[in-house]
Amino acid sequence: MSAAAPSVHATAVKVGDRAVLIRGPSGSGKSRLAFGLIVAGRSRQIPSAELIGDDRVMLEQRAGELWVRPVPELAGLIEVRGLGIRRCLFAPEAAVGLVVDLAAADAGRLPEASALGVGLDGVQLPRIPVGADYDPLPLVVAALTTADALAPATQLDDCRKDFGNHMSHTIVTD
């Protein structure tokens, strides 16, 4: 990556061979989600996970993919609320496979398809919008373990809420 790549206010965790890019305003829980993903990786709930960068990361489009790496001054540092800044192992870079937007205005129980993707530096990526009062960790773990995190998430037609309960009649009667 070039030394001139701009830094952005975000956190990134490498999960398996792809990065989860976590964006959101200060205090929205980026570091907390990152640490939660690392713990989930250590407990084998998701593939192995390690920090790339906390608070500020560098992004660069390369060969049609968006790559993320730590800002050198912050490499290996993560804020753990209540403990302060802690040092941990970190990955030097990874291609972004999923974007998580915390405190997202377009978050919803059943988000619109248009909210489940985002274009960054000319690269289309799957996106999870998370509301300000919602715990993002279960959503991200679900996205990483129930579907291909590199493909835009979609609702199955049979899972749309068309009736008084959460399932359509075709699921209940088939």
Rank of each mutant, 00 (worst) to 15 (best):
V141L: 12
V8N: 01
V8S: 00
V100N: 05
G131L: 10
D106H: 09
G16L: 05
L110F: 13
M1A: 10
A40V: 12
S43Q: 14
P70V: 02
S48N: 13
V8T: 12
L74T: 02
R109E: 10
G108C: 02
R42D: 15
G84A: 08
A94L: 07
C159R: 09
R44H: 15
D174G: 14
D54R: 08
A63T: 11
A132K: 11
R44I: 08
I171C: 02
S26T: 13
T11C: 15
L125W: 07
I85L: 14
A105I: 12
E60F: 05
A19H: 02
G24S: 05
R44C: 08
D101Y: 00
M58D: 04
V130P: 05
W67S: 01
P126Q: 00
R56I: 11
A132C: 13
S31D: 07
A19E: 08
A95Y: 07
L125H: 06
P72N: 00
L110E: 02
V13Y: 02
A153F: 10
A103K: 11
L156K: 12
L83E: 05
M167L: 15
S31N: 06
L110C: 01
I38N: 00
P47N: 07
E112C: 04
D157C: 02
I128R: 02
I46F: 02
H166D: 13
R42A: 15
P129F: 00
R69D: 04
R160V: 03
Q45L: 15
F35M: 15
D121W: 11
A142S: 15
I171G: 01
R23C: 03
L66Y: 04
I128G: 01
V172P: 08
V96S: 04
Q45R: 15
P129N: 01
V141G: 05
E50D: 09
R81H: 11
G64V: 08
L37Q: 08
R44G: 04
L144R: 01
I128C: 05
S168E: 09
A91Y: 03
G117V: 08
S26W: 05
L74Q: 06
N165W: 05
G16D: 07
G64L: 10
G119Q: 12
R32S: 11
G36L: 14
L137N: 06
L77N: 01
G84L: 11
V118F: 02
D133Q: 10
E112H: 13
F35G: 01
F35A: 13
E60K: 11
T11V: 14
P6L: 09
P72T: 02
S7Y: 13
A4E: 12
S43W: 04
A12D: 04
A103N: 13
I78E: 01
L137R: 05
L110S: 03
A147S: 07
I46G: 04
K161A: 11
L37C: 10
A49N: 09
A49C: 12
D148C: 12
V80S: 02
C88E: 14
Q61V: 11
R42M: 14
R127I: 09
P47L: 01
A10W: 11
G164K: 09
G41S: 12
E79D: 14
D157S: 06
G41V: 15
A75C: 06
R109N: 02
S28W: 13
T11A: 13
A63N: 12
S114I: 10
T11N: 04
I52Q: 07
D55W: 00
A153C: 00
S7R: 15
V15Q: 07
D54Q: 05
G122E: 10
L137G: 06
V99S: 03
S28L: 14
